[in-house]
């Protein structure tokens, strides 16, 4: 806010702050000077507004011991971080999760699901049997029979 200046303005401000007493001459000037009367009105409005700003409660001397007691209580309260069994259990769980994640990453995921499960055996003495998946998605069961079997 820009206000026009009058040579009495500083005196009006000094009287308003209680630094000096008002004079009849100044009273008369105030009645005729719009600048000084506006300045005074502005100062009154400003002071009224400041009254409504909330002020923090000062810590008065009688309250200080209670204030310090609260600080000490906060400092002396046991740490709520897990200790003992709970801490060890948490640590072990975290270690297992890390180990499992590492294992899965190294192993490259589960084995691909086989479409086929085969059990094969033979009762022919001396013969060998086996099986394999062929490229065309068929399954081959083979037997190697002795030459003189027949």
């Amino acid at each position: 806010m820009i206000m026009k200046q009058c040579r009495y303005t500083s005196q009006i401000e000094a009287v308003f702050d209680g630094e000096q007493k008002g004079t009849p001459e100044l009273e008369r000037h105030l009645e005729t000077c719009p600048v000084c009367s506006a300045t005074l009105a502005f100062l009154k409005q400003l002071r009224e507004g400041v009254k409504h700003i909330p002020h923090p409660e000062p810590v008065a001397d009688p309250q200080f011991p209670a204030f310090m007691a609260g600080v000490r209580e906060a400092l002396d309260t046991p740490d709520r971080r897990p200790r003992g069994f709970l801490a060890v259990a948490s640590l072990m769980t975290a270690a297992m999760v890390v180990a499992l994640a590492t294992f899965v990453m190294i192993k490259g995921g589960p084995d691909p699901v086989r479409a086929t499960e085969v059990e094969v055996s033979t009762d022919i003495e001396g013969a060998e049997v086996g099986w394999y998946d062929s490229e065309d998605d068929s399954i081959t069961i083979w037997i190697n029979m002795a030459e003189d079997d027949l």
Partner: peptide, 21 residues
């Protein structure tokens, strides 16, 4: 039993037995 087999087959999948003299 020349072969005794238990196998899982998908529909359309073939299984081949070979080596029988």
């Amino acid at each position: 039993n020349a072969f005794s087999t238990r196998v899982e087959l998908k529909p359309g999948q073939k299984i081949k037995f070979q080596g029988l003299k």
